[in-house]
Design a protein around this nucleic acid. Sequence first.
DNA 1: GTTCTCATGTAATAGGTTACATGATTAC
DNA 2: GTAATCATGTAACCTATTACATGAGAAC
Lengths: 202, 202
Amino acid sequence: MNTLGYAILSVLGRKPCSGYQLATHLEVLWPAKHSQIYPLLTKMEQNGLVVFEHVEQTGKPDKKIFSITEKGEESLGTWITGKTADPILRDEFLIKMYSMWMTDENQAKELIHDRIAKLEHKVALRDQKIAKVETEYSISSKHFGRYVLLNRSNLLDKEEISWCHWVLKIMENTNIIHFLLGIISAGTFNKIMQSISFFNEF
Amino acid sequence: MNTLGYAILSVLGRKPCSGYQLATHLEVLWPAKHSQIYPLLTKMEQNGLVVFEHVEQTGKPDKKIFSITEKGEESLGTWITGKTADPILRDEFLIKMYSMWMTDENQAKELIHDRIAKLEHKVALRDQKIAKVETEYSISSKHFGRYVLLNRSNLLDKEEISWCHWVLKIMENTNIIHFLLGIISAGTFNKIMQSISFFNEF
DNA sequence: GTTCTCATGTAATAGGTTACATGATTAC
DNA sequence: GTAATCATGTAACCTATTACATGAGAAC
């Protein structure tokens, strides 16, 4: 079975879910589209890792509620003890940041501002979810996993926002230096450029 | 063309590279195996986005040095101005963290300690690279992109290390609470659990 | 009236990994 | 002697996205 399968088992280990619900819960763990989830659930059911119950609904379409089996729990348990693959991040923003210095500086600034806005939006949404877990569930062991992961994402996003501001600051400084380039020497220029790295403490 | 293609153009925009060199430079931007890079380079060459020069070597295998063309630069330029897709992170560690509370707590601690070790290793390697850019290249505009991205990764990894320690602290505290559970009431338990969230400041 | 949520599924395609293939040089 | 680096390529396979398909109720 693939990683998505174990992510599904992890969610079902906390509470039984429909495929539709799984899609939303998996967002934090291992994002997947429904077209990938439904066929995999069928396959996992055939292998005895999960079972489902047909639930009829009025006004809404019927649904299948999946639960983890003992075999599924065992399977998840052995997978967890195995070695963990390195994380993979694919982010177009990084590519654009890499090459934008050679094109337009104003465009680069706009890109960073957009990034900050998106990150702040995500942080605000997650803050609500964190608050909800803290008040409603009072962090019982079943909600611990989700709680710490939400906090992790927010800490990292906040750190990236700081980094964005740091980059913007560097850009402003280099502008001044470019302006002064006609006056100061190349050696002085390099020294100033090096000193910029001390902005790390920002 | 796909995102990998634009990542390749970004690297080639800085300096001409062989497919082999590209594989290492792409690690920071958009990780890819050589089996994906080589066929794409051939395709991009056929479309006039890159050109290559055959370089014979002694002792080492011959290589193809690829450069970006004007058409390639234009193509990259229009892509950069287009909208940026949301980042995608796939990290098995998150799945394990999510469901580990229900299994073994010692195993969970081991997982976190392993993560800390790996992150610290990555940070140390990147610190060297950052130092190299600062001293050797004095952050000229061509190295700016790489320089800020290296700093970004290190800031985020350091933040994740802090988060790991925070989680370990919570786990130790819950141990004490579990121990006291026979003595204190459920209401008191919940209040203590909620107060744990204030460890965020850690 | 158009979009959002609920709810499930399949088919086609694109993207990415693993394995197969070769081979000299250098470093431990 | 065994692993790592340099260097390029193909084939088979797995993973993931987009598009096709259906349909009712609620909200704006």
